[in-house]
Design a protein around this nucleic acid. Structure first.
Lengths: 184, 184
DNA sequence: TCCGGCATGTAAGCGGTTACATGATTGC
DNA sequence: GCAATCATGTAACCGCTTACATGCCGGA
């Protein structure tokens, strides 16, 4: 039930947001912190409002919206409880990495396609992150935004490192007699 | 339904394995490529055998087991189809990173606990991966094992990089006036 | 003999997806 | 007036977890 907490990490910045805006955040690629479908986000928001973690306030911006959500004190308390008193789940389900683990099943030509796809993805991602960091809004200051901005730096170095690694993977497969310790 | 393919990436190495052994792999930390519960693994294995992706052969090692699974030709075909003709899902659900994104909600002392927990985890992980790479069995040779071994190298550099980043995150939070570009 | 690890499940329920439906508003 | 976007759902279904149950084998 971590979507609940993912929603909280968005709302903890203090800005009131409606369901649609939150759905956009969860769908955005370079902002991506949690995968979630629209249906699920709306359902979770209702549940959280009902249980008192969120409050529905008058909408700003858009007149079509039912209203905007903000974190309540109970919500902030739950956020703190989750952060400090629950263990992080390091269990992984990374579809793209799973494919790369299986790359040995393909011949050189096919492997090249798979690696190429991943390279394209991480190049796009690195560019988007660089742009996001370069254009960081000045009003995004303070402790909460600093934490968030730091994550973008982590994502960026990880993307770059993955690109480097993909090059090495290519070398490794194309030169089956080269010792792996020489490459990595 | 990617557990199916996660099971295939284990069996593609050619070694017959029973359900219990596969459950162990999925539970192992430094080997971790996909999170899955025992119940789910057994259920998926039955379904895959029924649909002809796996074959149940006579058990080696253990006499208690119902039998060992191996990949069929249809299984290898499905593996190739998945690798080449489906798009990788880059959607992320990383509980531990989600917590770090929210770290701005905590004060310095509390944040230190959270960072400490993560540091402990990644130190343990880096050590386990180093050990695994240092003790890599000689019989694990050939294209399929090379691909797998390469992933361990990626995981290791990622763990080390995350440790470096956690140090910077600490600095970043403890010195709110220091410009972030100086740290990262 | 009994305990711990091996080995495989069943049943209930929650979390999450996919496909589809609906209405309201803005811009051309 | 019409299309695109905004905004919020319903319904059915699947994947996955949690708690519990069962039996078998080997060793102290």
């Amino acid at each position: 039930m971590a979507l609940k907490h993912a929603i909280m990490t968005h709302l903890m910045r203090g800005l009131p947001r409606n369901g649609y805006e939150l759905v956009q955040y969860f769908a955005m690629d370079y902002e991506r912190l949690w995968k979630a479908s629209a249906t699920q986000v709306y359902a979770e928001l209702s549940r959280m409002a009902e249980s008192g973690l969120l409050e529905l306030v008058e909408n700003r911006a858009s007149s079509r919206s039912h209203g905007d959500y903000i974190l309540t004190d109970a919500g902030r308390q739950e956020l703190e409880r989750w952060l400090l008193h629950t263990e992080a789940d390091h269990g992984v389900r990374d579809d793209s990495l799973l494919k790369l683990i299986a790359i040995g099943a393909l011949d050189d030509e096919q492997a090249q396609i798979l690696i190429g796809n991943e390279q394209a993805y991480y190049r796009r991602r690195a560019l988007a992150l660089e742009k996001r960091l370069a254009e960081w809004p000045e009003e995004h200051e303070g402790r909460i935004w600093r934490g968030r901005r730091a994550i973008f730096h982590l994502w960026l170095v990880q993307a770059r490192q993955t690109l480097e690694w993909l090059e090495k993977l290519e070398t490794c497969l194309k030169n089956p007699d080269m010792p792996m310790d020489e490459i990595f």
